[in-house]
């Protein structure tokens, strides 16, 4: 069953979709196979434009992304989408409903049925990913999936997430271009402010501009941006995030969104921030991996005889919790190095 990872990767680099789908499952499962893949692809990644799209559920992210990628694919680009949706904390299951909105460009299906393999080569690659409960795993899986898309030649790579949870905010802020989608009448700007999304946004989209109140959202945002202008954020970066009005459902304004994203990438290139974003992204991934490794080691220590002995001593008066944790930390961090 386990086809060789490097074989799958070689096929994926040739543009085959099924091997890429299987590699993405390896990424999601994590563990040694995912690590092997990470090492294998590292040198090949680093050139794609990574775009994070976030905003409240129902704000139209998938509709917008779908419009963007079908336009991009039609003009000869090779876009990929990673659509992240939450798993149920109770059952671990998930309904991943982004794809139905992303992958339904009219005529797309017809074009494909004419000649599936040829048409498919030019279709955007869409992968749905569930958070699978453990945020630690997501923090590892998303950056690796993005690097994988990049390494096999997809560009841009668009990540859609609901903007809640630290991992998701991290993912978006580690993108080259962070897009925050807002809609009229949902108090979105207040929510986004609370979630810390306003600071990370490189580009705002006021979607559902066909609805009343869109102008109000734009004005609110503009005021908030004036504030960050006053705090000097704008002058230190030389960049003020544009606000783009769109009606993704009707295809209005989506080309402006793309132009603004390209302009932002141009700004990053011109100011050499593209490299620092990429480095920041790698740093975030490394940190997540270290934290994950520490957690696994801590779990193992808690299960070990030695760990249990230390902990049980706190049941009697002879060891306080802080002393026990210090002793465990010492065990965790001062492990003798493995001799080669």
């Amino acid at each position: 069953m386990t086809a060789n990872i490097s074989d799958l990767y070689a096929q994926a680099r040739k543009g085959e979709r099924r091997p890429l789908g299987r590699l993405l499952s390896i990424v999601e499962r994590g563990g040694p196979d995912a690590d092997e893949l990470s090492a294998l692809i590292h040198a090949d990644a680093g050139s794609a434009h990574i775009i994070g799209v976030t905003g409240s559920p129902g704000s139209g992210k998938s509709t917008l992304v779908g419009q963007l990628v079908s336009d991009l694919a039609a003009s000869g680009n090779k876009p990929a989408v990673l659509a992240v949706d939450p798993s149920s904390p109770l059952t671990g299951g998930a309904i991943l409903g982004d794809r139905v909105r992303i992958d339904r460009e009219p005529g797309g299906a017809a074009a494909r049925s004419a000649d599936r393999t040829t048409a498919q080569k030019h279709a955007p690659f869409v992968r749905s990913m569930a958070t699978r409960g453990h945020s630690g795993g997501l923090a590892l899986a998303v950056p690796l999936a993005v690097r994988l898309f990049d390494a096999v030649g997809y560009d841009p790579v668009i990540i859609e997430t609901v903007g809640v949870g630290q991992v998701e905010v991290d993912v978006v802020s580690a993108a080259d271009t962070a897009v925050v989608v807002m809609t009229p009448g949902m108090g979105d700007s207040v929510q986004a402010n609370k979630a810390g999304l306003l600071e990370v946004a490189d580009l705002f989209v006021v979607n559902k501009a066909d609805r009343p109140g869109a102008e109000d959202v734009r004005r609110d945002l503009d005021l908030m941006l004036d504030l960050s202008h006053m705090t000097g954020q704008e002058s230190s970066t030389g960049y003020r995030p544009p606000i783009v009005m769109a009606s993704a459902l009707h295809g209005d304004g989506t080309s402006n969104v793309w132009q603004a994203a390209v302009a932002h990438r141009g700004h990053l290139d011109a100011t050499e921030q593209r490299v620092s974003r990429r480095n920041y992204r790698l740093q975030t991934e490394i940190r997540a991996r270290v934290e994950h490794g520490l957690l696994l080691a801590a779990d193992a220590l808690f299960e070990s005889a030695h760990g249990r002995t230390v902990i049980s001593r706190t049941e009697h008066a002879d060891l306080a919790p802080n002393d026990a944790s210090q002793e465990l930390l010492n065990l965790l961090l001062n492990q003798p190095e493995e001799s080669p």
Binding site: L24, R112, S113
Partner: peptide, 15 residues
């Protein structure tokens, strides 16, 4: 309103 083709594409990409 899916077609066999959209379903197969999804099956491949979503594994």
């Amino acid at each position: 309103r899916q077609t066999t083709d959209t379903i197969i594409s999804a099956a491949e990409e979503e594994d």
